[in-house]
Write a protein that binds this DNA or RNA. Structure first.
Lengths: 130, 130
DNA sequence: ATGGGTGCAAATCTTTTGCATCGAG
DNA sequence: CTCGATGCAAAAGATTTGCACCCAT
């Protein structure tokens, strides 16, 4: 993933991207491995990780560093917020306009060159709520 | 960490808490291990992890599930925001009043029982900025 | 004296990486 | 053809856990 290599659109890479774009959930690398394996039974987990990294560097997918032990990935590259169920780990999108007062915070930390932010709500999802 | 056990304030636990409260940084378990080891050379990393979990369940410390590969801990249990340097991993506090429009979001996700949220800015710190 | 806590080491889980081979451009 | 990508397996990094002994209550 260095500077000026040519990125090849391999069969594996294309299918990983397709699968990730086909869901609105926010799967872990392992989830994606299972999804892709249905179509490419011989694919290895290492290839999944390498491609998710490549695709997120290219900006074609989002690597979500939400809480929990595993990273999650999102085929929707728009900037949006998430809510995570602290019971089952599910991550869902929150559909709303960006909150301007958060961007105002950028000024308060002017020692830093701010490049972005993450807002994540925690809660208990309807399924776990019984 | 079950339901009704009596929690003992052991020497190790007390010193871990003291050390964590003595800094404003947001150390990883490993950092805390090094700090505590200066006072208790025989302490084990397992004890550090077990106590940080216990203390955070008790609400005496905060487990910060910020991005990056390691979890970080905060002896300041007030709700505040953080900024993380994407280059060196340092996490600093942002001193500001809570942003009301974030709490307004809670209503938009009324299917969930919202219990809290996290706001984390990313950027490059002054030290890394050269 | 009890049963939660500790130190130690092994185990687990997630992610990364070395290497021989493959295949996209 | 070339060199980036893959599959496989081993390695690495972070955290958890089993167990015998210890000590706070």
């Amino acid at each position: 993933m260095g500077k000026k290599e040519i990125v090849r659109m391999t069969h594996q890479r294309k299918i990983i991207l397709e699968e990730l774009r086909s869901v609105t959930s926010h799967p872990t690398a392992d989830d994606i491995y299972a999804m892709v394996k249905r179509r490419l039974p011989k694919i290895s987990l290492g290839t999944i990780y390498r491609n998710l990294e490549t695709l997120s560097v290219l900006g074609l997918v989002q690597k979500l560093e939400v809480g929990g032990t595993q990273k999650r990935f999102d085929g929707d590259i728009s900037n949006h917020y998430h809510i995570r169920c602290t019971h089952c780990g599910t991550v869902e999108d929150i559909f709303t306009e960006p909150i301007a007062s958060i961007e105002d915070l950028f000024k308060k930390v002017d020692k830093y060159k701010v490049t972005g932010y993450r807002l994540e709500l925690f809660g208990v999802c309807p399924q776990c709520e019984q």
